[in-house]
Design a protein around this nucleic acid. Structure first.
Lengths: 151, 151
DNA sequence: TTCATATAAATGCAATTGCATCGACAAGGA
DNA sequence: TCCTTGTCGATGCAATTGCATTTATATGAA
């Protein structure tokens, strides 16, 4: 096991990355709260389910797409169901599981959240960097994805 | 009140930013947990206090430096004190407040956390981008800081 | 079949967080 | 001095989270 020391540039980039992303998310959450809307996590689920279409998704598929623990997804879906934003259907070929589908209210809620969320992205990112810089940023970040499980 | 729509580039950059930073932090937290060490938030406090030197810091100064709510800092400090990593001193010219100072154990703990934290930064950031790219990344992120409180 | 193991999803319980408020002191005007 | 308002930090309580485990079903080997 080798202990490594990060370069000053790496430390600086890390600090900025963590701090900035926290601020961006926090501001967005605040904006949603101020509008009486649910948190971003709800949007993520509604978004994935909307993308998935009529077939819906199994909870475990949702877990891979949004980065949440199994129990978090389980509870999140329970709340979304109580609010009528999704529906759970038994799945024929696997008695353990279920399929989750977005409802009409769910689509409507997704739209309402996006009005705020999208504006927040535009304010905080879109208006501050050129399209070219945004591409550069996304590309650099892309190289940090999916670190191969270290040792 | 104007509702804006973000460009596709902005959406892509946002998604990457949020997702990547979450993954990086999560992996680091996991590494700390695996080593039986406390969470990153503890490091942040110990780091600030170490920087501050013998004079220590008032809790409200800490609040500005690390991005945490007042009650979070209050409780975090209480835990750090129980573990003997910091000490709270009454402050002479303000009977309401206190000064928080890092202890020797606190410095030791900071060192131990950094062994893991630093390695995680090197693994996840330092080894993946050149010094030049790291500077570019930090610079782009820098332009996203401190959004002027929107309307 | 039968049994051992694996996977899907939910949940009991303890720990943590967020919200609102409180208690204590400070600051400044009347 | 007295009173109002503001700031510092802590905390009661409800909601949420994390961990470990449970329940239910599937899968595959013997």
């Amino acid at each position: 096991m080798t202990k490594k020391s990060p370069s000053p540039e790496a430390i600086a980039a890390w600090a900025r990355l963590v701090r900035v992303s926290r601020q961006l998310v926090e501001r967005t959450e605040d904006a949603l709260k101020a509008s009486g809307l649910p948190p971003l996590a709800w949007y993520d689920v509604l978004h994935e389910l909307a993308e998935a279409g009529e077939g819906g998704l199994r909870p475990f598929e949702l877990i891979d797409r949004i980065l949440l623990a199994q129990y978090s997804v389980s509870r999140l879906l329970a709340r979304l169901e109580v609010d009528g934003l999704i529906e759970k259907l038994p799945v024929s070929d696997d008695g353990r599981g279920q399929t989750v589908r977005i409802t009409a209210s769910g689509r409507e809620m997704r739209r309402r959240i996006w009005a705020i969320y999208g504006a927040s992205i535009a304010d905080q990112i879109g208006d501050r960097l050129s399209a070219q810089d945004l591409k550069t940023l996304a590309s650099l970040l892309g190289r940090l994805r999916d670190p191969p499980a270290s040792e």
